[in-house]
Simulated assay, not measured.
Amino acid sequence: MPRRTDARMSRHRDTPATIGAMPKIVDHEQRRADIISGLLRVVARDGIDAATTRALAKELGVATGSLWHYFSNFDTLVAEATARVIDLVSTRIAERTTNVRGMAKFDAIMTELLPLDDVTRNEAVIIVNLWGRLSTRTVYFEWVGTIETWWEDLRAAMCEAVEDGELVPETPVEELVQVFAAITHGQQVAHAAIPETPPEAHEAIVRTVLAPWRA
């Protein structure tokens, strides 16, 4: 008589596709990077209020529960996304200011900080949205020190400009650094609120502040 095949056994028999198969390996860091990128896209497009767990999962095409295998909570994710943007800005500043000094260095720094092109305008929207969530949380202070390096670079550039005769000796460098820091943050907020503001308007403010101190 023909032997009966146990259905339960047949479902678990090895096949050419399963013999020697290895478990799927997930690149943990790449997955974290993908989630951060997804959050940045949602925030830039729809704002922080729309960046819910459900919206982020939909953006990435994954189940909502899978997100929290990589981040302990939403604030941690937001903080790391903010750090990602700050690192990108810092990297570009470092690249643009290599082998330049004085006002050329100053201009290179401000070009990366003001919302002047598609990249920096997009970053302005993201940063304003993310800061609004993080500013009252302890995690905010973990990366805010990185931003101070931007103002240190700006200070160094202006001191070089004084030394090179591009700015007058009486230039109040310390005070102007604080002014330009405020202008940078203010113009990022202005762009987030009024995105149709042309880049020339942001640049004009910087030129106006510097005008009395140019040699």
Rank of each mutant, 00 (worst) to 15 (best):
A57F: 03
V42H: 08
L113K: 10
V179D: 05
I183H: 04
P23G: 01
A192S: 15
V168K: 15
I35S: 00
A55H: 11
Q187I: 00
N99W: 02
C159W: 02
T15K: 11
E166M: 09
M110D: 07
N122G: 03
A33P: 00
P115S: 09
R3G: 03
E142V: 01
I36R: 15
E175D: 06
M1W: 01
D34N: 12
T138Y: 12
V206T: 09
I126Q: 15
T208W: 02
E203W: 02
W143P: 00
Y70P: 01
A104H: 08
D117S: 07
G145S: 15
G132N: 12
L40Q: 13
D75R: 15
P212I: 09
D14Q: 15
V26I: 14
V62L: 11
L154S: 04
S66L: 07
V119F: 06
Q188D: 09
V26N: 14
A94D: 15
V144Y: 10
R41I: 00
P172L: 06
Q188R: 15
G65E: 13
V119T: 14
L116T: 03
R54T: 14
A201C: 01
K58D: 14
A81P: 04
G186Q: 02
V100S: 01
A192H: 11
E112L: 10
E200M: 06
D14C: 03
L67F: 07
T111G: 06
V177E: 09
I183W: 01
P115Q: 07
R45Y: 05
V177N: 06
T53S: 14
A83F: 08
T138N: 14
L113P: 03
E80G: 01
A161Q: 02
D75M: 12
R121I: 09
P16R: 07
A81T: 10
T98L: 12
W68S: 04
E148V: 10
A190S: 09
A17N: 06
R121N: 02
T18E: 10
E196P: 00
L88S: 15
H12S: 06
F71K: 11
S37A: 12
V125S: 08
V162S: 03
L77D: 05
H12I: 10
T64G: 04
V206S: 03
R45Q: 09
E152F: 02
E59K: 02
S37M: 08
L39K: 10
T91G: 05
T197M: 08
D118L: 07
A182K: 10
H185D: 11
R96D: 12
P169N: 00
A201W: 06
A7T: 12
G47L: 03
R155Y: 07
H202T: 04
L67G: 02
T97R: 07
G102W: 08
V85S: 03
A204I: 03
S90Y: 01
W151C: 05
A181F: 07
E95S: 12
A50Y: 04
E142L: 11
T53V: 08
W68N: 08
R214D: 01
G165E: 14
V119N: 04
I194R: 06
R41Y: 04
